[in-house]
Amino acid sequence: MSGKTVSPPVWDAHRLRIATDAAGIALWSWNVDTDEIALDERAYGLWGVDVGAITFEDLSARIHPEDLDRVRAAFASTREIFGAYEIDFRILHGAEVRWISARGRGDDQGIVGRMMFGVFLDVTGRKLAEEGREMMANEMAHRVKNLFAIASALTGISARSTATTTEMHRDLTQRLTALSRAHDLVRPVLSQPKEAAVLANLLAVLLGPYDDEGAIGARVRVCVPELLVGEASATTLALVVHELATNSIKYGSLSTESGTVAVSCTVQDSEVVITWTETGGPPVEALNKPSGFGSQLVTRSVSSQLGGTIAFDWPPEGVVVTLRMNKARLGA
């Protein structure tokens, strides 16, 4: 050993500022008597407020309405909290929503005069990743529940369209195999890129298992123009059609022996319009209109990935679903 003493770094204000900038840390102080909050430059930018005197009430105007009461209660109790605390909440930055983590120490630890200190962190990326994982978990649970319902319904269809147990076994196996192919379109393997698909062929694969004959043409009728669906859009469109077919076999026209589904399509300049029409099913009532995670997933997929909209109409004879999509986006 050289015997030399290594001096610790001097953490002056300049070096601390370099460190906080590198870590993306914004600083705040709070006067517990006047409620005035002082922010550093990064914090002003994070909140999107003008530099100057500001209070908690001023910042509250930026907090997402769904989080405001929770944040108010949390900050009101910080002086009673022993040790470190952390509060995550959303703020509105123009049209953008950001996630902020406010951290500090309660029970007046580290208070200087009447000033408490803490930091803000932009945790938007982490929260979006958490929401993505939650979405995937919900989607998996949703798909598993639907597969049980579909398997039960396909068994009923096979029983009606066959005369012997051997025929029923063969018919049901074919339907489940076709359903598996359709499921591959909904959740494709990333290592196996898909080519552009003809819209009519795509619908035939997706809807074939639900028809009495095991192929479209009897209860499921498709009339669409020659139109290519790009590999980037095929998965999304397959997911939407799969969800509509699942809802139909659980609640709609395909849940009865006489119900039918008609799928048609028109091309209007730069827009593709697909219409899903159900007839002959049970009377449409508010109680049996499908809703929940599946409907949210369909709406989000059509909007974000196909650049379009989806609308549901509920005449007594059966649901009518209208999908409007950007033609260029569908072919991508």
Rank of each mutant, 00 (worst) to 15 (best):
V112Q: 13
L147R: 03
K250H: 08
Q296T: 11
T235F: 04
V319N: 06
R300M: 06
G24T: 09
K4P: 00
P209M: 08
T266R: 13
L254R: 03
S191A: 13
K127M: 13
S152H: 12
I87F: 11
F148T: 10
W47S: 02
D58H: 10
L227A: 07
E66A: 07
A159G: 12
A178Y: 01
G230D: 08
S233G: 05
V123S: 09
G125K: 07
S161L: 08
H142R: 10
A23C: 06
G230T: 06
G292I: 07
T164D: 08
D171G: 00
E231I: 09
V272I: 09
L330P: 02
V186Q: 00
A197R: 12
W11R: 13
Y85S: 04
R105A: 05
E36D: 09
E317C: 02
R42W: 13
L92G: 05
V229H: 03
I157H: 01
S301G: 06
T322D: 05
N31V: 08
D122H: 12
S77G: 04
H242Q: 14
Y210C: 03
A151P: 02
I157C: 00
S101E: 10
Y85A: 04
Q296C: 01
R181T: 03
P193M: 04
F148R: 14
K127S: 07
Q192I: 07
D33W: 11
A197G: 06
H142N: 14
L147S: 08
G104T: 03
A19P: 10
G94Y: 03
A141Q: 12
A286L: 13
A234T: 08
M1S: 15
T155R: 12
G230V: 12
A163E: 14
K327D: 05
A22P: 03
H242S: 13
S295G: 06
P193I: 05
E167S: 13
I91G: 07
E80K: 11
K194P: 01
V6S: 05
T164K: 02
L207N: 00
G259L: 09
I249T: 07
D35L: 07
G113H: 00
V222A: 04
E195H: 10
E139P: 01
R181W: 12
I216S: 03
D67C: 01
R70W: 00
T162L: 07
E86Y: 04
L287M: 12
I157P: 00
T246F: 00
L46C: 06
D108R: 14
A84K: 07
A73Y: 05
L237N: 07
I150C: 01
